[in-house]
Design a protein around this nucleic acid. Structure first.
Length: 224
DNA sequence: ACATTAAATTCGA
DNA sequence: TCGAATTTAATGT
């Protein structure tokens, strides 16, 4: 159980809910913390919860049998994930790794389904979110197979700033170049070169431990 | 892998 | 509690 004010602060979707639904939601949420480097959810374990990131940075990834890894998405404060696995009642098909110490809001399955069955705004949020992620993943297949490292980094950044997934993110994010590299699946030097190329094109501005997005649309559309 | 720069922390007044 | 000195973290090549 968390405070209603806390829920409204960390969950954009909660602001659209009826007040009594907000009470339902907060009653089904607990706060959990994980240290940097730890696995928040292992591949194949049951998905009995829906998770919001309150603070920190994580990445969603899958591991190939030969040990190669494919990074699927970065997750930071304000983002919610896992709804697909919870809805389908199937084990998680990916692994969630904490890149920094993270604080999470964990909603139990029962509460999630109650909102799913009783709240229209909640459903609208879920549809938007699922649709947005689908679009991201389709874009990622194209980028990873065809496009330059600069375009891959541009896409990684644009997903982190995606207004549908991070409505309160604004245009700047505290993240190191090394962390962007981890999410993009590239080494830090390569990431650094790509970031400088994007800065030259005036799509982003680099600051110490921070990145400012100047044109999210162009970042997402970049193909060279 | 190394050199440089920014930030965070420690320490002494 | 202020600021200089030192250490740690991030960046650039």
């Amino acid at each position: 159980m968390i405070e209603a004010s806390k829920l409204l602060e960390i969950a954009n979707w909660a602001r659209e809910l009826d007040p009594d639904h907000v009470d339902r939601a907060r009653a089904g949420i607990v706060i959990k913390q994980y240290p940097a480097g730890s696995t928040v959810h292992e591949f194949g374990l049951p998905s009995d919860s829906w998770i919001g990131v309150i603070d920190g940075l994580m990445k969603m990834r899958i591991l190939a049998p030969d040990g190669r890894e494919v990074s699927l998405a970065g997750l930071h404060a304000g983002g919610w994930f896992g709804e697909g696995s919870v809805l389908k009642g199937e084990p998680r098909r990916y692994e969630i790794l904490a890149l920094r110490d993270v604080t999470l809001a964990v909603m139990d399955r029962k509460t999630f389904f109650w909102l799913f069955e009783n709240s229209l705004p909640f459903n609208q949020f879920l549809v938007r979110q699922l649709n947005q992620r689908l679009g991201q993943f389709i874009g990622q297949v194209i980028h990873d197979r065809i496009l330059s490292t600069t375009a891959r980094v541009a896409r990684t950044i644009s997903t982190l700033f995606d207004p549908a997934l991070y409505p309160d993110a604004g245009d700047s994010l505290e993240i190191t170049q090394e962390e962007i590299g981890l999410i993009a699946g590239l080494t830090r030097p390569v990431t650094n070169q790509a970031l400088r190329a994007l800065e030259t094109r005036e799509l982003i501005r680099l600051e110490y431990g921070k990145i400012v997005a100047l044109d999210i649309q162009k970042l997402a559309a970049l193909t060279t």
